[in-house]
Simulated scan of single mutants.
Amino acid sequence: MLKTWDEMDQVQPMVGKLLKNSIQKDRLAHAYLFEGMRGIGKKEASYLLAKSLFCSSPIDNYIPCDACSNCKRITSGNHPDLHLLEPDGLSIKKKQIQNLQEEFSKTGVESRKKMYIIVHADRMTGNAANSLLKFLEEPHSETTAILLTEGAQQILPTILSRCQIIKFQPFSPTILIKKLGEHGIERTKAPIIAQLTNNLDEALELSHNDWFAQAQKIVLKLYEVLKKNPLEALVMLQEEWFLHFKEKEQFDQGLDLLLLLYKDLLYLQLEKSSQVVYVSEMTRLQQYALHVSGRQVADGLSWILEAKRKLQANMNPQLLMEELVLRLQEGSSFV
Rank of each mutant, 00 (worst) to 15 (best):
K3P: 02
K20M: 13
K20A: 07
K25N: 13
R27S: 12
A29S: 14
E35K: 11
G36A: 05
G36V: 02
A45S: 11
L48H: 00
L48D: 01
S52I: 01
S57R: 08
Y62I: 07
S69K: 13
R73Y: 11
R73F: 04
H79C: 02
D81S: 12
D81V: 04
L82V: 05
H83E: 08
P87N: 06
P87D: 05
G89I: 10
S91Y: 11
K93H: 13
K94N: 15
I97E: 08
K106S: 09
K106H: 14
V109I: 14
E110L: 15
S111F: 12
K114H: 12
V119R: 10
V119F: 13
R123D: 11
T125H: 04
N127I: 11
N127Q: 14
A129E: 07
L133P: 09
L136S: 07
E138S: 12
T144Q: 10
L147K: 01
R162K: 10
Q164I: 10
Q164R: 06
Q164K: 11
I166L: 15
I166K: 00
I166A: 01
I166P: 03
I166H: 06
S172V: 10
P173C: 01
E186F: 11
T197H: 09
S207V: 07
W211C: 15
A213R: 10
A213C: 14
Q216T: 07
I218M: 07
I218A: 06
E224N: 12
V225K: 02
N229P: 05
P230K: 05
E232R: 03
L237E: 00
Q238Y: 15
E239H: 12
F242A: 03
H244A: 10
H244D: 02
D252G: 15
L259I: 05
L260F: 12
K272G: 05
S273W: 00
S273G: 12
S273P: 01
S274F: 13
V279A: 11
V279K: 02
V279S: 01
M282Q: 08
T283S: 15
T283E: 13
Q296V: 13
V297M: 00
G300A: 05
G300N: 02
L301A: 10
I304Y: 08
A313H: 09
N314S: 09
N316R: 09
V335S: 12
